[in-house]
Computed example of a mutant assay.
Amino acid sequence: MATKAYELYGVPTAPEDPEQEYMTVQETAYVLMCSVSWLRRFLREHDALCGRNGRRGRIITNREQRAAIHATRSAGDPRTGRSVPRQRRPRRTAVKTSVAA
């Protein structure tokens, strides 16, 4: 069962206007079609792609930052230099040979 905090802050929500200047993390995740937890981890690593609002530090993004997040995300897997991460293949099990008696 999800907690009350998760239901408030962990679920992507549709913005009133998808073209508005500033959006919260939940609205940005909805527009970019990703999870809120992934977006928070991404923004923690890339401080320049988000802003803070108010004393409590609510994370907001503007149009340019959302475009940069999308471009970074669409660039592919930076660990291997591939444009798309490789699909995992199922492991082959070793073939047992029977010993002739």
Rank of each mutant, 00 (worst) to 15 (best):
T3W: 13
A48F: 03
R73C: 09
R66Y: 00
R40M: 04
R66E: 03
F42Y: 13
A29Y: 01
R91V: 00
G10V: 04
T80V: 08
R88S: 04
G81F: 07
I69P: 10
A100P: 01
R55W: 02
L32V: 07
W38G: 05
T3F: 06
L43I: 02
A71H: 11
P18E: 04
R58M: 00
E21A: 08
Q87Y: 05
R56Y: 02
A94C: 04
E16S: 08
V36M: 04
Y9A: 04
K4E: 14
E21H: 09
L43N: 10
A14E: 15
P90G: 03
L39H: 12
P18S: 06
L8R: 15
R55G: 03
A48G: 05
V95K: 15
P12I: 03
T24C: 08
W38T: 08
V11M: 06
V11P: 06
D17S: 08
R73E: 04
R73H: 11
G10I: 03
S35M: 00
K96T: 09
P18D: 05
P78E: 06
L8Q: 15
G57Y: 01
A14G: 01
V95N: 07
R88M: 09
E64F: 01
T93R: 15
W38H: 12
A2G: 02
P15D: 08
W38V: 03
T72Q: 14
Q20Y: 02
Q20M: 12
V25Q: 05
T3E: 10
T13M: 09
H46Q: 08
T28F: 01
T97S: 09
K96S: 07
T61E: 06
R41T: 05
A29T: 04
E16T: 10
A71I: 02
L39I: 05
T80H: 15
G57P: 02
R86I: 03
C50K: 15
T28C: 13
P78T: 07
P12R: 05
H46R: 15
A48V: 06
R82V: 06
R66V: 02
R89N: 03
V31I: 14
M33E: 15
G10R: 12
G57I: 02
T93Q: 14
R58Q: 11
R73S: 12
E27D: 06
G54D: 04
A29Q: 08
H46W: 00
P15V: 04
G10C: 06
R79S: 12
S35C: 01
D47Q: 13
N62S: 09
R66P: 08
Y9R: 09
R63Y: 00
P78N: 10
E21R: 12
E64K: 11
C34D: 03
A100E: 13
E16R: 09
R55I: 00
L49M: 14
R92P: 02
T80R: 12
S74H: 09
